[in-house]
Design a protein around this nucleic acid. Structure first.
Lengths: 242, 242
DNA sequence: CGGTACATTGAAGGGGCTCAATCCACGTGG
DNA sequence: CCACGTGGATTGAGCCCCTTCAATGTACCG
């Protein structure tokens, strides 16, 4: 099993051998969670964070009347359990999209890190910030964009995020979500997600065959979605921190 | 000038005199920001957090084509600048709704706190979690609820939040947002916000006269909005932290 | 007194939803 | 090996919620 959290952080800062050792300790022991299994359950109490080592998951919330909102997708190296473990009970659930491997970090150990490894603490704060910022981004998309814009943006954002963790080729990847889940993520009905995808396909911007997605015209999609090339850079860490 | 951050945290945990002293230091010196002035500007770099001591503000984002999304409302005692100060440049702006007073906390001082006052650090992490959780909540509202539900929920949520900081009576408060801003917050057009408010007024659920809002039928609104009585408790701190 | 900010209301159109049927791939058990 | 069930994708028809555009009212302020 790789150490995706280490890899992710090493992209942004250079880690000392000691820091890498501490991070490595956060990523063991490894434990599996199978597809469709809940990793975090809304309403339950947690005193730990999880590191997603392999596979994918979604954060989501189901309202009493059954409407489901997917908040975002969790990729390898991401932390699971912020903000959940800071509350008396988790405010939303996390469910494995594929078979996954996780490690668990007790809250006490996390807080200990903050005392003893201030630089790592800053990096973890930054990771928490990324999660919060992604919710805020998603809010602007759902609140103010048309269905076609949302779908186009989603396809590009996923390409960039998957690429960053080595799960996509230059212009293609395997779609982890069903159209129904895409709808729940984008605030659309499944039917309309399908129609939007059809239009993008019809316009030659993307090819979809089963799970396989090929971005045929990045610029064309980016123009529809108002997608920034430098998407990933928006989340760059403040160098005053390190 | 009061110390609203101290007051807010003291609601959840009992603070030692020393901790209260440290918190007090975070809330000086005081500096004003007038109505409509930007406190944080998207794209700029920050190496500090702000504590909102008095007045209100909004977090928001404007897309290149002019569409604006208000993320949420900032009340006294709230921290401004998470997640902004952890990034190379702020991802969204914060603007004063009223004349406000702020204090500024350099990032280095914040990180120092994490080393020297672990319990306060945990409380600050919890505050960050609250902000992230509120974005996630807002996502589920905008993504999956009708206009009437959103407006009703907003009116109740604001009542509870304002009450918690002493800015509302038991069932009335002064509305800090224009209908246009409500629209930008709820992902609706201003026109439709107006119509939704009219319907709620027509049904006798709420009275609105100028800025003054009176919740005439809490239960009726709560039924429409699927609002939980214990809204504020959802964000209760994990007692394993303290 | 004119200007600006905000609220209000109407009319008309469309984007996205609901409901419903169909199709396809796949796995599973008889 | 086939029948069947299941999960997912696709497509059509109709409609309604919400948007856009537009006009008007009203309070406040320089």
């Amino acid at each position: 099993m790789a150490a995706p959290l280490t890899a992710k952080l090493a992209h942004s800062v250079s880690l000392s051998p000691q820091e890498m050792a501490v991070l490595a300790e956060l990523q063991v022991p490894v434990r599996p969670a199978r597809r469709h299994r809940e990793i975090v359950t809304e309403g339950r109490k947690y005193a730990e964070l999880f590191v997603l080592l392999e596979g994918m998951a979604i954060r989501y919330r189901v309202s009493p009347d059954g409407r489901r909102q997917v908040l975002n997708i969790v990729l390898p190296g991401d932390l699971i359990g912020f903000p959940a473990c800071f509350f008396q009970s988790a405010l939303f659930s996390v469910s494995a999209l594929t078979d996954t491997y996780l490690s668990s970090v007790p809250l006490s150990r996390l807080l200990g890190l903050f005392e003893r490894h201030p630089r790592l603490a800053a990096l973890l704060l930054w990771q928490f910030s990324c999660e919060a910022a992604m919710y805020a981004e998603q809010l602007t998309h759902i609140g103010r964009r048309s269905a076609l814009e949302r779908v186009a943006h989603f396809l590009l954002e996923l390409l960039i995020r998957l690429e960053a963790v080595g799960l996509a080729e230059e212009r293609s990847y395997s779609m982890p979500l069903t159209q129904e889940l895409m709808g729940d993520l984008l605030g659309l009905s499944m039917t309309h997600v399908n129609r939007s995808l059809r239009q993008l396909r019809g316009d030659g911007l993307v090819s979809i065959d089963g799970r396989s997605v090929v971005i045929e015209d990045f610029e064309g999609l980016a123009a529809i979605a108002d997608f920034e090339r430098s998407y990933i850079n928006r989340f760059r860490i403040n160098d005053a921190l390190i």
